[in-house]
Amino acid sequence: MIDFPILFEDGEALVIDKPAGLPLDTPRAGGVSLDDYLDELRFGFQRAPAPVHRLDRDTSGCLLLARNPKALKRFSAAFEARIVTKVYLGVVQGTFELKHGTIDLALSKISSAANGWRMIAAKKGKPARTHWKVLAEHDGLSLVEFRPETGRTHQIRVHALEGLGQPLVGDPVYGDGDGTGRTLLHALRLEVPRDGKPPVVAEAPIPDDFRALGFTL
């Protein structure tokens, strides 16, 4: 049974409010994933919808699904062309003198047998750019709006650590993993332009674990 809100729906698109902790693919160790819900998300359509982009397991919020292969191709092209507006909220350790800016740090993947894989800032990596703005501060934490231009793996998480000098609260890879049950990152808003049609626009309410730390919009 579907236990998350549908934020947008029409003949070619669905946007769901993905819960934190729900992976898109079935984990190696087993367990529930978005794959288990795709058939229910048909809502009478012949095909099950397919995710257009990716959100980390811990990340909550706006996830776009395409209802047919043609829509999937068009939406994927929009992401590739960087014409999709993506707005995220993250709770970051610490407070900052500078309240807004742009982080330009190329990213590269590294891995080791002992620690697994992670992304790092590297001059020879793939270009990555994120605009950021502090929205609020509370108890030594900052609510930060992130607007990524690119869509690199773990981009916001690494840019928070390397660009702002502090990790996202709860991040077990780029921070200490303490304080919450997950990395506090939320896909707040998504806007996807479409030729000849109104854009796909969706906004996901701020999650309860953000509110529990004193952050609202």
Rank of each mutant, 00 (worst) to 15 (best):
V192L: 14
V52R: 01
R118T: 05
F45Q: 13
W132N: 00
A136R: 08
G125K: 03
R57V: 11
D176A: 09
D3K: 11
P148L: 10
Y37E: 08
S108N: 10
F146Y: 12
P69K: 06
A71Y: 07
K197T: 05
T183N: 01
P23M: 03
L107G: 03
Q155P: 06
L24W: 10
F79S: 08
A113G: 09
G125C: 10
S33R: 03
K70D: 14
V200P: 06
P198D: 12
K18L: 01
G21W: 07
I83Q: 12
A212N: 14
D36Y: 13
L188E: 04
W132C: 06
K70F: 05
K197N: 07
A212V: 14
Q93N: 10
G11A: 05
L14G: 08
E9K: 09
H154Y: 04
V192I: 13
D208T: 03
D39V: 13
S108A: 13
G165L: 14
E12Q: 09
T153E: 06
L168W: 03
D195V: 14
L107A: 08
T153K: 04
D56E: 04
R28H: 11
L143W: 12
R28A: 07
K197C: 14
T183F: 01
V134W: 00
P69G: 06
I103H: 06
P19L: 09
P127A: 12
P207C: 04
E145F: 09
R47M: 07
K197Q: 13
T59I: 13
A114G: 00
R47I: 14
G196M: 05
F210L: 00
S111V: 11
A29R: 15
F4K: 10
L34K: 03
A128D: 10
L38V: 13
S76Q: 15
F79Y: 11
S142E: 00
H131A: 01
F146D: 00
D56H: 07
K133N: 10
A20R: 05
H186N: 01
